[in-house]
Design a binder for these strands. Structure first.
Lengths: 115, 115
DNA sequence: GAGAGATACCTTGACAGGTGAGGTATATGT
DNA sequence: ACATATACCTCACCTGTCAAGGTATCTCTC
C-alpha cells in the first residue's frame, strides 16, 4: 500500500533532517534514499522536496554548497547545522506525541472488550 | 506537550469517524470527547470540525439529524453510515501504513549500531 | 433584569504545505 | 538522433486548517 501524502504532510522537513543526520546529501539522493527506505511505498515529489530544502535553509537548519563533480549534472549538497539537529530532535518528539494522540483517537474503544 | 495541528492534518475526518463508531454524537460533544481522550493535549478548532462534518456528509460517510432538545441550544446529531464504517477502516489502515513509514524515515539509522 | 459564561451551531477569508506541469542541463545507451 | 536517467528549479493551483466574526439558548450571580 502506498502512502497518502496528506498523512505525511508536516513531516517532510523532519524526514529530510533525519536523512541529513546521517551525513551530507543532495536532493536527488535524499529522495532516492527515502524511496529505498520505504521499499518504494513513498517518494517526495520534486517540488515538495526542493521547497522544503529552501525552507530549511531559510530557517538556518541546513546549509548548502555545490559539489565539485567533474562529470554528470551538478549537485547541490546540504549539510545539517547545529540548529538543524536541535530542530530535528524537537520535531521528532512532536511527531511522537502526535502519533500517540492519533493512535488513541483512532482506537474504537473497547466496545464489548475485556478491559 | 500540545500537538502541532500540522501533524494531525489529514486525520481529522478519520478521528471524527472513529468517535462516531462508538455511537451518534453532535459536534460540540465529539470535540469535547477528543479533548478528554487526549488529556487536553488536542482539540479541533470549530471551523475545522464543522467543515470536516460537512465533507463527511457530502461524501455519504455520515448522516445528520436535528435532536429534539426541548431545552438548551439545538444540536445536530451525526450518525455513521455503512460507507462511513468502511471508510473508517480503510483510513485507519492508511494511517497505520503512514505511521510505520514515518517512524522508519525519522529513525536516524544505526550509526555505529550492530546491524 | 443585567451581565457573564457555558453550550451549540455556522460562515468567510486568508494562509501554508504539497503538487502537477513546465523548464534547464549533462551523461549514457541504442 | 532519440530515449532515459540524473539533477536542479519555478509557478500556479488545490486543499485542509483556522482566526475572526456571527447567531441563539440556558444557567448562575449580583
Amino acid at each position: 500500500m502506498s502512502v497518502a501524502s496528506e498523512l505525511i504532510r508536516g513531516n517532510t522537513e523532519t524526514i529530510i533532517l533525519a536523512q541529513l543526520m546521517k551525513g551530507d546529501g543532495y536532493g536527488y539522493m535524499v529522495n532516492k534514499a527515502i524511496l529505498n527506505l520505504t521499499g518504494g511505498r513513498f517518494e517526495l515529489k520534486e517540488a515538495t522536496l526542493y521547497t522544503a530544502f529552501r525552507r530549511l535553509e531559510d530557517a538556518g537548519c541546513i546549509v548548502s554548497y555545490w559539489g565539485d563533480e567533474t562529470t554528470g549534472a551538478r549537485r547541490r549538497y546540504y549539510s545539517i547545522t547545529d540548529l538543524g539537529k536541535e530542530s530535528y530532535r524537537l520535531r521528532k518528539k512532536e511527531w511522537e506525541t502526535a502519533e500517540a494522540v492519533i493512535d488513541k483517537l483512532l482506537a474504537e474503544g473497547e466496545i464489548g472488550g475485556s478491559k
